[in-house]
Lab assay of single mutants.
Amino acid sequence: KELVLVLYDYQEKSPREVTVKKGDILTLLNSTNKDWWKVEVDDSQGFIPAAYLKKL
């Protein structure tokens, strides 16, 4: 599985998104959309702007 590093805090703005903190390491589930990547946070899944993430 691929991991990503969160570069900036992000507060979810819709139920399909997730809240993350700078420095979090998350599992990347889908990066086919260049603007929004799907990640797994704890036991939930959701989208975060790709610009907030860096592949490890």
Rank of each mutant, 00 (worst) to 15 (best):
K1Y: 13
K1D: 08
K1G: 09
K1W: 10
K1C: 14
K1V: 12
K1M: 11
K1F: 12
E2A: 11
E2C: 15
E2S: 12
E2H: 11
E2T: 13
E2M: 13
L3Q: 11
L3K: 12
L3I: 07
L3V: 07
L3S: 06
V4H: 01
V4I: 04
V4Y: 05
V4K: 00
V4F: 03
L5N: 01
L5A: 04
L5T: 04
L5Q: 08
L5M: 10
V6Q: 00
V6A: 06
V6K: 00
L7K: 05
L7M: 08
L7V: 07
L7W: 02
L7E: 02
Y8K: 14
Y8T: 07
Y8G: 06
D9W: 04
D9C: 04
D9A: 06
D9H: 05
D9F: 04
D9E: 05
Y10H: 03
Y10R: 03
Y10M: 02
Y10G: 01
Y10K: 01
Q11N: 14
Q11K: 13
Q11T: 14
Q11C: 12
E12D: 06
E12A: 15
E12R: 15
E12G: 15
K13Y: 08
K13L: 09
K13I: 07
K13N: 09
K13G: 08
K13P: 05
K13S: 10
S14K: 07
S14L: 08
S14T: 11
S14E: 09
P15Y: 08
P15F: 07
P15S: 11
P15C: 09
P15E: 12
R16Y: 13
R16K: 11
R16L: 13
E17F: 08
E17S: 10
E17Y: 07
V18L: 15
V18E: 02
V18I: 14
V18R: 05
V18M: 13
V18G: 04
T19M: 07
T19L: 05
T19D: 05
T19Q: 06
T19H: 07
V20E: 01
V20T: 04
V20D: 00
V20G: 03
V20R: 01
V20L: 05
K21H: 10
K21L: 06
K21T: 08
K21G: 04
K22H: 05
K22S: 07
K22R: 12
K22V: 06
K22D: 02
G23F: 03
G23D: 05
G23M: 03
G23W: 06
G23A: 02
G23V: 01
G23C: 07
D24V: 07
D24K: 06
D24H: 07
D24M: 15
D24C: 06
I25V: 11
I25G: 00
I25P: 00
I25Q: 03
I25Y: 04
L26V: 11
L26R: 01
L26N: 00
L26E: 01
T27P: 10
T27Q: 09
T27I: 15
L28F: 02
L28D: 00
L28M: 03
L28E: 01
L29T: 05
N30M: 08
N30G: 06
N30C: 13
N30K: 06
N30H: 07
N30P: 03
N30S: 12
N30E: 14
S31T: 08
S31E: 11
S31D: 14
S31N: 08
S31F: 05
T32Q: 12
T32G: 09
T32W: 09
T32Y: 09
N33D: 14
N33M: 08
N33C: 10
N33A: 07
N33E: 09
N33K: 06
N33P: 04
K34N: 10
K34L: 09
K34Y: 07
K34R: 12
K34T: 11
K34W: 06
K34D: 12
K34V: 09
K34M: 09
D35F: 15
D35P: 01
W36A: 03
W36S: 03
W36L: 05
W37M: 02
W37L: 01
W37C: 03
W37T: 00
W37P: 00
W37A: 02
W37Q: 00
K38L: 15
K38W: 13
K38V: 14
K38C: 15
V39E: 01
V39P: 00
V39T: 00
V39A: 01
E40L: 12
E40C: 14
E40A: 13
E40I: 10
E40N: 05
V41C: 08
V41S: 13
V41H: 11
V41W: 08
V41Q: 07
V41N: 12
D42R: 14
D42I: 08
D42N: 14
D42S: 11
D43F: 10
D43H: 12
D43K: 12
D43P: 03
S44M: 15
S44P: 00
S44Q: 15
S44V: 15
S44R: 15
S44T: 14
Q45E: 13
Q45A: 12
Q45Y: 14
Q45S: 13
Q45F: 13
G46C: 15
G46S: 08
G46L: 15
G46W: 14
F47Y: 14
F47E: 04
F47D: 04
I48W: 02
I48C: 14
I48K: 00
I48L: 13
P49M: 05
P49G: 02
A50F: 03
A50G: 04
A50R: 11
A50L: 03
A50C: 08
A50P: 07
A50K: 07
A51I: 13
A51H: 13
A51V: 12
A51W: 12
A51N: 12
Y52K: 04
Y52M: 07
Y52S: 05
L53G: 05
L53K: 01
L53Q: 00
L53N: 00
L53V: 13
K54L: 13
K54C: 15
K54R: 12
K54A: 10
K55N: 06
K55L: 13
K55I: 12
L56M: 09
L56Q: 05
L56K: 03
L56H: 05
L56E: 03
L56I: 13
